[in-house]
């Protein structure tokens, strides 16, 4: 967590919540009231800190069928109003991370969130991407599940993370070609 975020947390009177979250405890409803409307990057910073502490930099890519495993919660964007903007969706995602025990994974759907927001979601608390790699709606740029998976691995790498079980590829690890 950077100096700016740390200062902002202190200024917002939220510094003690970071300790609670890093011990693995989720925020209570009462505490959620305190963070519900604070600065978006502040909420994101808290969520990303929890994500990094309990789930590291690895990102899981799962099909909808594989999601039925255990220890995961899928972000349901219907918690927001219809037509919610990206900022609203990501705030709700970060709040879901904060109200979920640290050891429980938070997943987002590529189908419903779209690639652009799904990649950004990885810095707002998400550690798992869920989608059907055979769906053209999910990944429109390349054909075939293998190519789509590789495209997705590239997106994850460009967000500074790595796909679990995949050796980082230097050619896609950063956005400078």
């Amino acid at each position: 967590m950077g100096r700016v975020l740390s200062r902002a947390l202190e200024a917002a009177g939220l510094a003690e919540l970071a300790g609670q979250l890093l011990s693995g405890d989720a925020l209570t409803a009462e505490q959620l009231v305190r963070v519900g409307d604070v600065d978006l990057l502040l909420v994101a910073g808290l969520a990303d800190t929890v994500r990094a502490r309990f789930h590291g930099d690895e990102v899981q890519i799962l099909s909808s069928r594989e999601l039925q495993g255990g220890g995961r919660v899928l972000f349901d964007q219907t918690v927001t109003a219809a037509g919610a903007t990206g900022a609203e969706l990501l705030r709700e995602l970060a709040l879901l991370r904060l109200t979920t025990p640290g050891n429980v994974s938070v997943a987002v759907s590529l189908e419903t969130l779209g690639l652009e927001l799904a990649q950004t979601a990885l810095v707002f608390g998400a550690d798992t991407l869920v989608g059907d790699l055979g769906s053209s709606r999910t990944l429109p740029l390349l054909d075939g599940p293998t190519a789509r998976r590789r495209e997705l691995e590239g997106l994850v790498a460009r967000s500074g993370r790595r796909v679990r079980g995949v050796t980082p590829d230097a050619s896609i690890a950063e956005s400078a070609p």
């Binding site: 009231v33 519900g36 255990g70 220890g71 995961r72 919660v73 349901d76 918690v79 109200t99 429980v104």
Partner: peptide, 20 residues
């Protein structure tokens, strides 16, 4: 804020996919 939180908590409980 309180209304938002109540909505969030209610929706969270209603999540269809919640494993473990």
């Amino acid at each position: 804020a309180a209304l938002k939180v109540r909505d969030r908590m209610a929706n969270k409980r209603a999540l269809a996919v919640m494993s473990g």
